[in-house]
Amino acid sequence: MVKTYIFRFLIAVLTSIFMGLLYMGIGRKFMARIRRCYAGPFYQSYIDVIKLFSKNSISHNWIMDFGVMMGFAGIIATVVFLPIGPFNVFPDMKGNIIIIMYFMTIGYLGMAMGVAASGNPNATIGIARALSLMIGYEIPFALSVILLIFANRSSLLYDMVLSQHGSFLNWNMFRYPFAFAGSLIALQGMLGEQPFDAMIAPAEIASGPMVELSGKFLGFGFLQHASQIFLETGIIAAMFLGGGTILGFFTKQLILYLITLSIAAVFSRYRFEDAVKFFWIIPTLLVLLQLVIFLA
């Protein structure tokens, strides 16, 4: 019993890292083609990660080690709750969306603890921006979650997927188009792509949270970002695009990621307070409109 759980847990985590890195690689190629470049091979991210773990790294104190690990652990602990297509890691949990939203913040908080302990002011500014941006995009996202909980009378992601079975017109994307649009904008913020990349801002605060991370710490940061891409596109794919078979699920995730990238390719950066304001106005209103239509 315990063994099967551990086995399933490992499969879910490894899948998320493997697929996340693959999406990152494909995404880089995609971005390069938009700019008329070619970029490296699609497996470039794997090479990067292996290289990072082979480098020396410097730690400032144990809080930094612990925080970086906690950031990574927070994200992989969340992936466990995500139904990957028809596959559930803990068959009796079925991905409660409230738990997912709660656990997702732990990743950020761990990262915040780790990089704040690194003592570089740029890192602190970056993570402060990331956390305030979170307040921005969580509101439209939480509203659309509330909408779907109302609609399905259940807070399980698995039930939401089940209710969208059958023809693709059953997908929540077509049933609740405004909520889908709002969540898509929120996804842009969750992934930290332009125009919402004020926390990274390489030319301004020297890549924000990652400033002091070297070698394996940056490697963990990379892995965390990979699982994060997998997790967040996965949530939207399950909520609005009807889950599907494993392959179909991966394809939907990739398409969602490429959509965010193509939006990112043409936008410059919002100041973070403008970004928060934007999140509280446009996507929030879109989702609220959908709520009103649904209740009426």
Partner: peptide, 22 residues
């Protein structure tokens, strides 16, 4: 670095801080 000579083909890229760079 950019599209004319496109150094990213070799997996190279600019980094922001000395800690991250090789």
């Amino acid at each position: 670095m950019t599209s004319r000579w496109d150094m990213e083909r070799f997996g190279m890229g600019p980094m922001a801080t000395p800690r991250q760079a090789d």
